[in-house]
Design a protein around this nucleic acid. Structure first.
Lengths: 248, 248
DNA sequence: GTCAAGCGTTTGTCATGACATACTGACGTT
DNA sequence: AACGTCAGTATGTCATGACAAACGCTTGAC
């Protein structure tokens, strides 16, 4: 544990903040196994001294790792690397992003796309005035040429000017929003299950009454404005949610 | 926006850190509506000056609120209150905690409790050597005198010495672990759905083939050791998961 | 052998001070 | 009207310095 600081390089002329460079280097050391799970880091005082940094800067680098769940700190004891298999996996992504990442050949069929006054429960979910216009979309999502999910999504009418059904056919909803300059930050999700209706079963290629995994979601941007409400159903035998939880 | 600092009281002789006192006060102001969603906080420099604190201390208080999703910060602009309905709800809790909080009269019937060598897939989930002893439990959980969930849980044998079936009948698993000095920190969950088997349907009071919400979970302690693997099924018409996601 | 106190270690908290960067609005020019 | 520039504003980064609190280990007393 004597030469950890010697494995960390920092470029004082780089525009990348010093704390971030150090955090990244430490993260690489952890991922590579050079700092294995359970091992103790040198003290923040020692690392700062050897790297020629101030202690608060070193603390900020380590705090970054704590936030990522890579290390834990204990007063009087030190800083320890957490189990390497454990990561924070809380992600706000769309199904398209997920499937593309998993290389499951996503394809989308837009079944409906319209702008109309919001039904009551949609206006409530999106924190809109009753009767406010929303974009309503209905899409059937395929993976590897099999139906996977049926999705209803609603967006306030002004959120993505010029949004078209064609765009939704080619890209995921969140990707389209990103190209319109909309950044989603937080989402509240409810995950459940129920039987498929006859219409859903037909579209998804399941038998009537088959179990579906359901998810309703309201997504907000950085200023807390509701940007999207989604109500999705997935074929239970083909999809599940992976969620990581962290205790504070 | 002129008197925010005058609404914040700090006790310099309290053992509670100053930054935490300020963060708590600001949080109260936000929750009460005195600092409504969308409003701008006074600058960190001004607040620090008026409260007689150093700027880094003020920054730490505000960072605490950022972490909680209550405010967002933008360089050159300032600090703004986020939509008040949005909170980070990422929590590592047991069903018992959830139901007690929701005042749904939780009750537990322990169907099985034993210590035996771990089956292959359990040893893998708990990162144990094949054949290592695990505590195996099976519980039927009730809410308001109706069956709600059927749970199988597995713990490495040495995790909670003296753990008994009686304890599990009276308290939730995580509460029991806490009294044994075990602190859970991170969990990986998979949420899905499927049809109930005949045995499950009988225990849960559902018809055969009814949709069940499923969840598998491996929970880890602060040092990253796997502490518990759980495989749970819930009646879909009586339970759903609430998950909040935050984009980084 | 056991328990408590003390000490060394390490992180946590807090302060003063200074410079850099990103953002917004106003103003001037084309 | 549109675009570019600049100044003011606010957060972000970094530094030096000091004290407090929690933890683990060692030693001494019983």
């Amino acid at each position: 544990m004597d030469g950890i600081a010697s494995l960390i390089t920092i470029d004082r002329f780089s525009p990348v903040p010093l704390y971030f460079q150090v955090a990244t280097s430490l993260e690489d050391l952890i991922e590579s196994g050079r700092l294995p799970a359970g091992s103790r880091l040198d003290t923040e005082v020692m690392l700062a001294d050897r790297l020629g940094l101030s202690r608060p800067t070193m603390r900020q680098a380590i705090a970054h790792l704590v936030d990522k769940g890579l290390v834990v700190r204990k007063r009087g004891v030190g800083t320890q690397v957490v189990h390497s298999a454990v990561r924070r996996k809380v992600e706000l992504t769309s199904l398209n992003d997920d499937l593309r990442r998993a290389q499951r050949s996503p394809r989308t069929e837009v079944l409906a796309f319209s702008v109309a006054p919001a039904p009551e429960h949609i206006a409530v979910a999106l924190h809109l005035e009753p009767g406010a216009d929303v974009i309503t979309t209905q899409r059937l999502r395929y993976a590897e040429d099999e139906p996977l999910a049926l999705m209803h999504n609603y967006l306030p009418a002004g959120v993505a000017p010029g949004l078209t059904a064609e765009q939704l056919g080619e890209q995921g909803l969140y990707q389209v929003l990103r190209t319109h300059g909309v950044q989603l930050r937080i989402a509240d999700q409810t995950i459940g299950a129920r039987r498929a209706t006859a219409a859903e079963a037909r579209l998804l290629g399941e038998s009537r009454g088959a179990p579906l995994l359901t998810m309703q979601r309201t997504a907000y941007d950085h200023a807390g404005r509701a940007i999207e409400y989604g109500s999705h159903v997935y074929r239970a035998d083909r999809y599940s949610f992976e969620v990581s939880l962290v205790a504070r």
